[in-house]
Design a binder for these strands. Sequence first.
DNA 1: TAATATAGTTAGTTTGCCCTAACTTTGCAA
DNA 2: TTGCAAAGTTAGGGCAAACTAACTATATTA
Lengths: 157, 157
Amino acid sequence: MAIRTDEKLSASLEDYLEAIYHLTVRQDVARSKDIANSMGVTRASVTGALRALSEKGLVHYKPYGYTTLTEKGRQAAGRVARRHEILAQFFGALLGVDAATAETAACKAEHALGPEITARLMAFVEFLSQTQDDGKDVAQQFQAYWETLNESKYPSG
Amino acid sequence: MAIRTDEKLSASLEDYLEAIYHLTVRQDVARSKDIANSMGVTRASVTGALRALSEKGLVHYKPYGYTTLTEKGRQAAGRVARRHEILAQFFGALLGVDAATAETAACKAEHALGPEITARLMAFVEFLSQTQDDGKDVAQQFQAYWETLNESKYPSG
DNA sequence: TAATATAGTTAGTTTGCCCTAACTTTGCAA
DNA sequence: TTGCAAAGTTAGGGCAAACTAACTATATTA
């Protein structure tokens, strides 16, 4: 039996993949130091992760060389990044939480969503932003609803 | 300085707490064997988790005795269970994914949501189920939207 | 009540992921 | 072109959470 290189990724490896993805968009190549910085880990941790991702066929990795994504890696990273974006949009634009909170939660929750839910959530966000009522979209309506909830809780504030 | 017993729980410990919560509702007391069964881990793993939860003041634990939640534990478990329920409802009733998928995703995603997002998501679910349009609620409308998306993808099926 | 099955614990191992400290490689500047 | 700083790696350790195997306590029932 051949070595399986397509097992499910851990949350941690998904995070590395996503970081590499963003870096390669900006600067073509991902350097250990930049990955470490963007994730808040040490360079030593990055080396370990790169080895793991390389074994799974997701990155082109040579010690002391530049790191790039393989085609398979690009696809996997794209899926993760898309989940992240959808969630951040849902939390931020629709629920109305502040940007930092939305980002943090999206980063943690993205690992829990499979393709089924991802697809539907994406469609749902789109659906809501298209739907208008009284000239207001659903996000605005919910915002108003949320305000009234809080007013009834803190009537004077 | 006193020992801190209110540090943030790991995803794993939150899961144990939630399992204990559900068991004590059903049968007043949580037995290691039942916790192990409901979580798909061995009894030995449960012992370790109970010790950890006990150290944090979340469960009443005595070796070979029955386990119950402390008041603090009940509150923490309730928060987790509520997040779980809200997510499952959102994934299932609104997005329209099947029950098993909704459950699995809720169980994984619940650990990523803080109080801010939890509160707003709960309100959002409520808001949508209250809002009616054309005599149809938003879930139904989205369902129709989703169908048309899939039809345009697979026109003959 | 003594034998045995079931539940629970302990000890020791594994895996994943992070760290620090020390080492190697690379690239740039004098 | 040598020589140093920055980047990268290796070695070794810690912690959390799971496992197996072996042991202890409790409960059942003959």
